[in-house]
Design a protein around this nucleic acid. Sequence first.
DNA 1: TTAACTGTATTATATAACTAATACACTTTT
DNA 2: AAAAGTGTATTAGTTATATAATACAGTTAA
Lengths: 125, 125
Amino acid sequence: MISFEDFILEDDSPIYMQIIRYVKRGIVSGAIQSGEEMISRRALSVLLGVNPNTIQKAYHLLEEEGIIRSRSGAKSCVEVDEAKKEEIRHSLLQLDTLSWLRAMKQMGVEREEALKLAEEMWQEA
Amino acid sequence: MISFEDFILEDDSPIYMQIIRYVKRGIVSGAIQSGEEMISRRALSVLLGVNPNTIQKAYHLLEEEGIIRSRSGAKSCVEVDEAKKEEIRHSLLQLDTLSWLRAMKQMGVEREEALKLAEEMWQEA
DNA sequence: TTAACTGTATTATATAACTAATACACTTTT
DNA sequence: AAAAGTGTATTAGTTATATAATACAGTTAA
């Protein structure tokens, strides 16, 4: 079951967005596999100290995106085929990297300097 | 005068935050220098198609952070010494890079793969 | 000096994000 | 079968974000 063990709340974006991001990244890494059960909405709300409705919003959106499947009464399950996984992987890698590169460019950081900085900070991240 | 020429609205974070980020990054790159006049709140609101109060919120926070100075009736001015500039540069580089590296790690991307991806995408960013 | 522009402040409204409390029907477990 | 857990829904309230319409006093420029 997906336990959200290493999930940490940040405060830059809405909580339900952070939950969606966490699940998507887990799917990309392989830590979350198709067929796995999600932790229940109530349990996750207690675990994160967040309102159940906020979790419901995240799960509902995940279902609308075709990433999880829910049937009333039972736990929700992750359900993604290889094509979906590759689609998620591609879009996340692209968007995250682009926004970092644009930040560096806007700050006038040279390519080599940016790469060197990333290389040096890798282990502490 | 700081004209916000290349400023583009994205929709992931609040507009007033994006404005603050834009000014800070400009200071780091040197595109925005201490002593320069800011575009007026009203003019910027027209330029971005955004409510004047939203601009006022951004400018007010920039003043609270000790980045601009305002006197009633005259245009606001950027006012940052070298120490402040270095502080901004350090925190922005650190935070932006850390969040990208964490994203890569959460997706199970190896260090070499991440660096290679960034290198390849540099020009299109 | 006047007119235009500027920063600042106020009041009102709308939507999004989050919390709170509760209810109902379905599934799983005991 | 009964209890516990589950997805789903509803209603209400708070805070943050953004818009809208004014107003006033200080500064700048004609």
